[in-house]
Simulated scan of single mutants.
Amino acid sequence: MNNFQKMANSALDELSNVFAKMNDKDIRPLLDSIEKADRIFLLGAGREGLSTREFAMRLMHLGKEAHWLWDDTTPAVSPGDLFICACGSADVSHENVICDNAKQAGANLLLITPSSEGYLLSIADIVIKVPAMAYKAVYHSEDDYVPTNQMMGNQFEQALLIFFDVIVMMLKDEMDLTNEDMEARHRNVE
């Protein structure tokens, strides 16, 4: 086996092990919150943010009113809105401030993280754990994560992208939508 295949297989095995530690019960609060929400706001920073922004797009394709926080057209957060933050360490200063502001505006804060400690855990209404290794995350037990040979949070960032796509597939089925329903909402002027 060449070096590329060896490293690729290692990364894929790690991701398989991350998802093997999760089940329907772990993610049910996320599914229910999204299905009930009239408006959803999403936040993530860096590479976690790239995965989360992709999720915002797919929520729109599902027919949800979804807003990526950093877009210039994002409206004001209101009471009852769902505010989803993906944060590996659960403690990034600007995300802490933004999530505090969202809570003060009346949003329900849903945090997606692998971390066992961090400011955002103390203010989140719902926490969804993705048991991957993230940059600067704190773990209380080796059962809380899958060991990695990758650097600087790669495993969590990769897991987020796949995690969000699986959530969208589940929501599509639960909302009784078809691929064609979603494709009809895709941007059509490109």
Rank of each mutant, 00 (worst) to 15 (best):
Q5E: 15
L120N: 12
L171E: 05
L161Y: 12
S89D: 09
I40D: 00
D81K: 05
F4K: 10
S122V: 04
D13R: 14
L62M: 04
D173W: 07
L15A: 09
D13G: 14
F164C: 05
L31K: 13
P75N: 09
D165H: 08
A37I: 03
F55W: 12
A159S: 15
L111H: 05
K129I: 02
P29R: 10
I167F: 05
K172V: 00
L15H: 00
Q5C: 07
V168D: 15
E95A: 15
D26E: 05
C99M: 14
V166N: 05
A137G: 12
V92T: 14
M57Q: 07
G118P: 04
R53W: 07
E190H: 12
K36E: 13
C99Q: 11
E190V: 11
D165V: 00
L62C: 02
G80N: 06
L121C: 10
N188I: 03
Q5M: 13
A8G: 01
T74D: 09
M22N: 13
K6W: 06
M133S: 11
I34W: 07
F164Y: 15
N149W: 00
L121Y: 07
K25H: 02
Y139F: 15
D81F: 08
M1S: 01
F156V: 08
M151E: 10
V138Y: 11
Y135S: 04
L59T: 02
N101W: 06
F19T: 01
L59F: 08
M152Q: 10
T73Q: 10
L12R: 03
G88L: 07
F4S: 13
D72F: 07
V130G: 02
F164V: 02
K21E: 03
V166G: 04
E180C: 01
P75V: 04
A159T: 12
M152Y: 09
R185T: 05
G80Q: 04
E54L: 15
S33D: 10
L43P: 00
Y145W: 08
G63Y: 06
M175R: 13
F55D: 00
N149I: 05
Q104I: 02
A137I: 01
A56D: 12
A184E: 15
